[in-house]
Design a protein around this nucleic acid. Structure first.
Lengths: 263, 263
DNA sequence: GGATGTGAACATTTTCACAGCT
DNA sequence: AGCTGTGAAAATGTTCACATCC
């Protein structure tokens, strides 16, 4: 998902597959829960169930980290928690800044999962002067003017952007110039960053649209005709002649209707 | 990715690859922006740049939808907007409920991208009686007790869970029982749902942990020794003898240190 | 000339199934 | 007997490169 470029493509450094990396936090969460219940060991089957994946995948994932299990027994919970934490870089403390303290930014600042697990909110930054000094989640908001010095003084390398879309790229540029090399973007924009900077995005409306796609399929295919009212089908063909696909398949439940959508 | 089960595994129904579906909203957003600027056509190259992907991928993606471009010219913006909207099911209106109107839920309710693009916040639901009736983003919060009737009366099939982790599974069960078949989960829990129900999750701390992983790599590999203070290395071996991996590779920057992590 | 659409090569990810160790 | 660890197969996703059409 990172935008910058597929994370240093040629880095052969004993690579853990990206798909595996993305699941490690899931395993870690499940393991932490077990640890809190003082469960000493888990089988791949149990842990996989707790993490919502299948056991073959989990075992394969763990095999990239090393042989941390015991055949016939399972995995030592505490030991695995540590190994995964270390692999993810959570044995060190990551100072994080949140830029854009609106509704969402405030929610993120208040989010508990932040403080735990290796991350620390080093600063909250907002462009609105009337916010400056006001504490959110116990942390006083600072003004955007001081962004660079805040980054440098706190040694921040991870930034969270929760600004409106219009401000995101500009904030991103300043973060990167100040030394941030990892960005979590909540603004609905594509950020462009130089090589070496990782961007991950979290986007509500994208997720909803993906759900809608599948939802639509369900309604169309299943006997349960739970359909909502369709928007008025439009008109106006494409620039040239409407072309058909080469195989015989149909494009969708309501055919190739040329159209103009209301923006 | 959806948890429930790989979206109806055997559904051969002229499948659009999941990876493509996940990118359609990106294209749609870029196209909408072009449309607003009254740009009539785009090349795959331009559109790909705007969406943050490469043009080969974009063309391949579009080829699954049909032949909507014109060789030598490009794509008609309005036409493509409609085709993708239709494919995603956005030509109909999806009523959505948000459950859990805390900081995050309120932020989601206020989020503009919600109202546009085919989604409508049909109701806000919270378990706290003192919230009931209070308007958030202009919509009065309703009590959890009425969840089932709200779902049914509004024909809701998409639910957003923004409750604390502890309440998420219970809320999920009730949503599903009431007829919701797509869930967007912001709570840091694995939800278990029956077959046919899609779940997508958005998880701040998972994203941060993935960033931390790459960040750690950067610090370790590059000359720039920008390292944060490491947590005290722990002790205590796994249940059995520490095993070595079969190939000669090393597991991590600081070796196979057996460990107990502070929970 | 210029850009799409797509087979074919390549890469990554998932799943299978079982050998190997406890 | 039980469960991990992993090669090999299968599935999915990405990129290349070019024939095809406007």
């Amino acid at each position: 998902m990172a935008t910058g470029r597929t994370h240093r493509p040629a880095t052969r450094s004993r690579g853990i597959p990206e798909a595996t990396v993305a699941r490690l936090p899931l395993y870690l969460r499940a393991l932490t829960a077990l640890s809190e219940r003082s469960v000493p060991t888990v089988s791949s089957e149990e842990l996989a169930a707790a993490a919502g994946v299948n056991s073959a995948k989990l075992r394969k994932d763990f095999s990239y980290l090393g042989s941390y299990g015991t055949r016939g027994v399972g995995y030592d919970v505490e030991y695995l928690v540590y190994q995964i934490s270390r692999e993810l870089g959570l044995t060190q403390d990551w100072p994080v800044v949140i830029v854009g303290i609106g509704n969402l930014g405030a929610a993120l600042a208040n989010y508990g999962g932040f403080a735990s697990r290796g991350f620390r909110v080093a600063a909250l930054i907002d462009a609105d002067p009337s916010m400056t000094g006001r504490p959110v989640a116990g942390i006083p908001v600072q003004h955007t003017d001081d962004l660079e010095s805040i980054i440098e003084e706190n040694g921040v390398s991870i930034g969270v952007i929760a600004t409106p879309a219009g401000a995101a790229q500009q904030v991103c540029d300043r973060l990167v110039a100040a030394g941030v090399t990892s960005i979590l973007n909540f603004a609905p924009t594509v950020l462009s960053v130089p090589d070496g900077v990782d961007v991950r995005k979290v986007d509500l409306s994208i997720e909803l649209q993906i759900l809608a796609f599948h939802e639509q399929r369900k309604a169309g295919e299943e006997p349960t005709g739970e359909s909502a009212a369709d928007t008025a089908p439009p008109a106006a063909p494409p620039a040239a002649t409407v072309r058909r696909r080469t195989d015989g398949t149909e494009p969708g439940p309501d055919g190739d209707v040329p159209a103009v959508m209301p923006a």
